[in-house]
Amino acid sequence: MSELTLRPGRAFSMVERNLLIYRHTWPVLLAEIFEPMMYLLAFGVGIGVLVGNVPGLADTTVSFPRFVAPALLATAAMNGAMNETTFNMYAKLATEKTYQAILTTPMSSRAVALGEVTWALLRGTIVSTTFLVAVSLIGLTGTWTALLVVPAALLIGATFASLGLVVVTLLRSWQDTQLIQLVMLPMFLFSTTFFPLSVYPKPVQWLVEALPLYHSIELVRACFLGTGWRHALIAIAYLVVLGLAALLVAVRRLDRTLRT
C-alpha cells in the first residue's frame, strides 16, 4: 500500500539533488534564456521589419515580434522540460545508473518521475519568467493577462516533461536521441511559430492542429495578446489530458525499466 501513497517530500529530494548540481552549473540556465531572445531578435525583429503586421490574423494590428514572442516562449518552455527529462534523464538512466542507486533507498520510481517533472517545472518557471520580463521591457506586452503566461508555461512544461519521460523509456541508445530532434525541429517550425495557421492548406492545418506545441503556442499567445480565449481553453484541456496520460504511462514504463 505504501508504494501507492504519493509523498511529495520524497519526490522533492530529486529537486534538491538538481539544486545541488545547479549550484555548480547554473550558467546552463542562462543559455536557455538567451536562446529564445536570439530567435526573437533575429526572426521577430529582423523579419518583422520586412513584413510589418501579420497578415491573416483577425486582429491586423499585431506586429510580427508580438506574434512571435509568445511562440518562442512556449517553445522555450517545451525545450527546457524535454531536455531535462530526455537527454539529462537518459544519461542518468543508461550511463550513470543514478536512478538504480536511488531506487535502493525508500524512493519509488513514481517519486523519481514526479521529482524530475517538478524540477523541470521549476526550471521552466525561471526561464519563462525571465523571458517575459525581458520582452515586457522592450515593450512587446500590452495587457495584464500577459502575467498568465507564467502559469501557462508551467502547464506546458509539465506536459512536455511527462512526454519526455515516456520518450526516455523508449530510447535504446544515444543514437535514438537524434530522432527526438527529428520530431522537435519540424514541430517548432510548423506550429504557427512564425506564420498563422491560415497560411497552410487545409490538410496541413489539421496536422498542425494535432501537435502539442501548436496548442501550447495558442495558449501562451492568448495570454500574451489578450485574445483567443476559446482556443486557450481547448489548449488547456488538451495539455492536461495529454500530460496526465503521459505521466501514467511513463511511471509504469520507468518502473519496469528500472526494476528488472
Binding site: S13, E16, R17, L20, E96, K97, T98, Q100, T105, P106
Partner: peptide, 28 residues
C-alpha cells in the same frame, strides 16, 4: 537496509560529501 551494489553507482555530478547528503535525503 544498506546496499553496496556490484558496480559503483556514485552520483558523478556531485561531490563526495554531496553524495552522502543527498542519499540521506532519499531516506528522508
Amino acid at each position: 537496509l544498506g546496499v553496496v551494489p556490484q558496480d559503483d553507482t556514485l552520483d558523478t555530478e556531485l561531490t563526495v560529501r554531496e553524495n552522502l547528503l543527498i542519499y540521506g535525503r532519499y531516506f528522508g
